[in-house]
Amino acid sequence: MTVQVVVTGTDTGIGKTVFAAGLAGLLDGFYWKPVQSGLDEETDSEVVARLSDLPSGRVLPEGYRLKRPLSPHRSAELDGVAIEAAKLSLPELPGPLIIEGAGGLMVPLNRQTRFIDVFQKWQLPVVLCARTALGTINHTLLSLEALRTRSIPLLGIAFIGEEMADTQRTIAEMGKVRVLGRLPRLDPLTPEALCAAMRAAFSAADFMEIPQ
């Protein structure tokens, strides 16, 4: 069976897209962002295409492209678009697929549906990206609880940022969750640096497992 992994985060702007780019490269797979809000600056798909060094065609077209950098539900309303979660069907591909959500789990797609509702329907293994900075313990433990309440398969946590040993240990112990690795902030952020950092911090085999 082809591996399909959802990459989500505890919040917006934590480095989830950079991690998704690195993971797509690590697994030599495909990348898909179902809903993109904000088109004036570089989109997440464009970031992944630039950083992952994947062959042409491995970054799939978004299901919805919305103009304003707002929550998808509001951006869609302002664009006169109705996001239909049922139409976000999973593509069939010949290799691993990395699917990136928008922001955190509770981000609304429309006035009735949140991303976590779609993830629950898909029942795909989830990687939860969490920053290491102050505030992450609360956000991460809440996100873990939300995933487990809905019986969504969880591969583990991917930390992003500088090492905060006690914070990471606290989340692992109190959240009873596996830590997959930690991606440091990279400067400069280049495809080569991201590839090297991912290979140093993560094992591709960990993302090929099916959570019990």
Rank of each mutant, 00 (worst) to 15 (best):
D40T: 10
L180F: 08
I14N: 05
A200L: 13
R131W: 05
S71T: 08
P125R: 00
A85L: 10
S37F: 06
L97N: 15
F119P: 00
L128F: 08
V59M: 12
D79T: 12
E192T: 12
T136D: 05
I14H: 00
Y31C: 11
W122G: 09
G57A: 01
F30W: 14
G15D: 01
P94D: 15
P108G: 10
A197I: 10
S151F: 08
G95K: 11
V48T: 08
R182N: 15
T170V: 15
P55G: 09
D44E: 10
D44R: 03
P184C: 09
R111C: 13
S71G: 07
A165N: 07
L70R: 09
L144C: 04
S75H: 07
S75I: 05
N110C: 12
P188G: 03
M174K: 06
L23W: 03
P153S: 06
D40W: 00
Q112K: 14
P191Y: 03
P188T: 02
I83C: 14
P61I: 02
F115Q: 15
R148I: 08
R131S: 15
D117G: 11
E162Q: 05
Q4E: 14
R150W: 12
P94N: 12
G156S: 05
D187L: 10
M1Q: 07
V18W: 02
S143G: 06
R169H: 15
I14W: 00
A193Q: 12
E162M: 00
L109C: 14
V7K: 02
V59I: 15
I14C: 06
A49M: 10
